[in-house]
Design a protein around this nucleic acid. Sequence first.
DNA 1: TCATATACCGAAAAATTATTCGGTATATGG
DNA 2: CCATATACCGAATAATTTTTCGGTATATGA
Lengths: 121, 121
Amino acid sequence: MAYEKKIPVDLDCPLRLTMSLIESKWKSCILDELRNGEPQRPSEIHRCLPEAAPRVLDIQLKEMVEDGLVTKTIYPELPPRSEYKISALGLSLIPIIDLMLKWGEEHFDIFERKYGGKCGK
Amino acid sequence: MAYEKKIPVDLDCPLRLTMSLIESKWKSCILDELRNGEPQRPSEIHRCLPEAAPRVLDIQLKEMVEDGLVTKTIYPELPPRSEYKISALGLSLIPIIDLMLKWGEEHFDIFERKYGGKCGK
DNA sequence: TCATATACCGAAAAATTATTCGGTATATGG
DNA sequence: CCATATACCGAATAATTTTTCGGTATATGA
């Protein structure tokens, strides 16, 4: 496990269970990246999300593999090669990602006006 | 604003915009609490979410008012009385909350088996 | 030979979020 | 008179997440 927690996550609450799987900074973007089902190498994922610190993508990918949202294949080659692919479980989250994407696009202007493009609120 | 940020949130990404509004620990639960449209007093909300630290509910409710997801009415009485009510903007997030609820219920057993009821992972 | 790319990891630091504690003020019920 | 409830806030602390830096090892191309 990437991060150890002292305060337990309440998985009895279905809302918090779902949230706990996608709420980290880049997990929803990673799912969106992998949604087409094509396996992707970590370096490609890094390039597609250039604002993410590479280390945190590694950590979050690892957690997503542990949670079963993504599968990982390691090819025993040198230089090393591996691929991440969205799983059936991960695909089942895509409708949620889609709704959030749609919502964000539809309401972008409100928050644009309110906070500007980037926001340190 | 409750917490000041040094690293700006990228509101240009519709996914991260939507996530930024609901990803804090109890915001999705608060929306679910208020979904029926009835105004609720803060003490009621606290009672419905007994696992939440009261202080953080105050802070997150305040942020949700700033973001326009919830409206607040203060009655100038003593002892003080106020009410929070979900806004039209907040209601527009309910389909997302619903999907997450449904997903969590449908996949509860997987994570139950995996991590047990509560999880310090 | 040397910079670059590959994938990954540990550890420290920084940033963010949550928790706990104590405080403001007033009314009600015992 | 005193505990309780109401709503809220500041500040210190704790917990969590993210960032940054440096390191492992090997192959390729300039």
